[in-house]
């Protein structure tokens, strides 16, 4: 199913890329393979930065009209994330199917999403979370921008419509903000939304489940070429180096100073 571009002054078609992550309420365990977490008993939830991206997209749509499409790979519990997005106001949801199970490297994810974005063609902006807990490369938006030859901005904290363009605010570190205007297609890595992600009432999620369908898109064969490979995953090892310092505050302070001196941190 294809939905026609809504013809309206300034209306934007925004695509939001979402991904599923292991829920940290679970105790994660390393799978027998040693290069992934054990996914069998883990619950999956959507990446919170992607939720911020969705919120930003919905705010843009509310301001100027247009369309919000959410897209994700077929990962565990992804349907719930996509239906919640529809309940919040997204118009369409697309799932890329046929991807190998298990952890998807960000480079592969970027290529898969780019294929769909290319085939869809008529979108104005692609928004996704600037990072994710399981994202080794941390470059999803950047890679997509590079693959498609579309300008990219990272760590975006605001994307406000201005005519048919987007005024973008980025965090540059050290409290510095930068503002720029993106004319034409743009890919954004969202750090935060202008407001906290809205609530999707359960009634509406259930309605979405019964009245809307998730479109599917077949994953295509992708040759990633050379790149990093995960060799081992392991929980952080505790080294048991905590030392408790006893005594009254003055004594403790003296001991701390001594330690800092001994380690050569100050002279």
């Amino acid at each position: 199913m294809k939905v026609r571009r809504i013809e309206k002054g300034g209306a934007l078609k925004i695509v939001v890329g979402m991904r599923q992550l292991a829920d940290l309420v679970e105790e994660l365990e390393v799978a027998d393979s040693g290069v992934d977490i054990d996914r069998d008993f883990v619950k999956f939830v959507s990446n919170e930065w992607d939720e911020a991206a969705l919120e930003e997209a919905l705010l843009i749509k509310e301001a100027v009209g247009g369309e919000v499409v959410v897209i994700a790979l077929d990962e565990p519990d992804v349907d719930q994330t996509l239906y919640s997005a529809i309940a919040k106001g997204a118009d369409r949801a697309v799932k890329i199917v046929g991807v190998e199970e298990g952890w998807t490297p960000t480079r592969l994810r970027a290529q898969l999403l780019s294929k769909w974005l290319k085939s869809e063609g008529d979108w104005d902006a692609f928004l996704t979370g600037v990072q994710a807990a399981d994202d080794l490369d941390g470059q999803l938006a950047g890679l997509i921008g590079a693959t498609l030859g579309v300008p990219h901005a990272a760590v975006v904290s605001k994307a406000e419509p201005e005519g048919s363009s987007l005024r973008i605010t980025q965090e540059l570190g050290g409290g510095t903000l930068s503002e720029s205007v993106a004319t034409g297609k743009v890919v954004l890595g969202i750090q935060a939304g202008r407001q906290a992600p809205r609530y999707a009432p359960i009634t509406r999620i259930r309605q979405a489940m019964s009245t809307s369908t998730i479109e599917t898109f077949d994953a295509q064969e992708i040759d990633l070429g050379p790149g990093p490979k995960v060799r081992k995953i392991y929980p952080p090892q505790s080294k048991g180096q905590a030392t408790m310092l006893d005594g009254d505050p003055v004594e403790v302070a003296e001991k701390i100073v001594e330690l800092i001196r001994a380690k050569g941190l100050v002279r």
Binding site: V25, E26, E27, F41, K43, V45, Y199, I202, I205
Partner: peptide
């Protein structure tokens, strides 16, 4: 609400 929907308990604890 979100925790209850996701985990079946209001505390957001692991159902297992």
């Amino acid at each position: 609400f979100e925790k209850t929907f996701r985990y079946g308990n209001a505390l957001g604890e692991n159902p297992r």
